[in-house]
Amino acid sequence: MFQTATEQESVIIPRNTLFINQKEASQGATVNRESRETVGQVKVNNPRISCHNVNVFYGAKQAINNINLDIGHNEVIALIGPSGCGKSTLLRCLNRMNDTIDGCHVTGEIFINNQNINNREIDVVPLRAQVGMVFQKPNPFPKSIYENIAFGPRIHGLANSKQDIEEIVVTSLQKTGLWNEVKDRLEQPGISLSGGQQQRLCIARTIAVSPEIILMDEPCSALDPIGTAKIEELMDELRAQYTIVIVTHSMQQAARVSQRTAYFHMGDLIEVGTTKQIFTSPLHQLTEDYITGRFG
């Protein structure tokens, strides 16, 4: 049921502390509901993404509180939690999508490949190619299937010739398992595809610009079980090349697709651990209450 992952020692990370210093949480022990300290495996070796003391404010309202979290290479990490807990807000921090929201203010540091992307001098256009995003609702461009894929590489200057672009289009569609389904109708509009195909087209569009990280915000919530299964299978294949961060409300999806899971509650990162550990023996009472359906 679960993806294999290296088990690491679980610890409580004191607020404002970035480094694991001692094993404090015994296996199976449950941290009480009132505690807001992050419990679990926050740090990883050689992280692809490293969030240090990240806070997000919408005007005066603080949406996420001092988040510290590492995300490794070639892993799928699921961000889970009730509505309004800050998981999508954190996701949008990872490619500066929050910049597009008036009044949104992000503090702290987010390192991707040792570069702080929260630095205002960072150019967000290449950043968003490096960190692609797939949204809840499939949103293909009102263009042909071919152009949906070709548009990104063309504007980012990733192809020097028509032949290069064609190669990118074919490769991207093959990687998402869509090639055999659309190879004879590349000139048809993207929106003529089924919901599941549209979502895979959006993923193909994302990987066409050679990202390192793919952010997925409830990518299957509008899909039927078959479409969902295809996306999940695709995520498993893409993991070999990319880091994937997925926000999902489906506990079973988080359990199926991710190697690590992070649980958020009212802006706090409550617990991080291997998916196996979170879904069999969570350390924090809030995590257990949420994933077992004991509060909404």
Binding site: I278, S281, I291, T292
Partner: peptide, 9 residues
């Protein structure tokens, strides 16, 4: 119910 965590145990 697809039990998890304590329910699964």
């Amino acid at each position: 119910r697809a039990p998890v965590a304590r329910d699964l145990r």
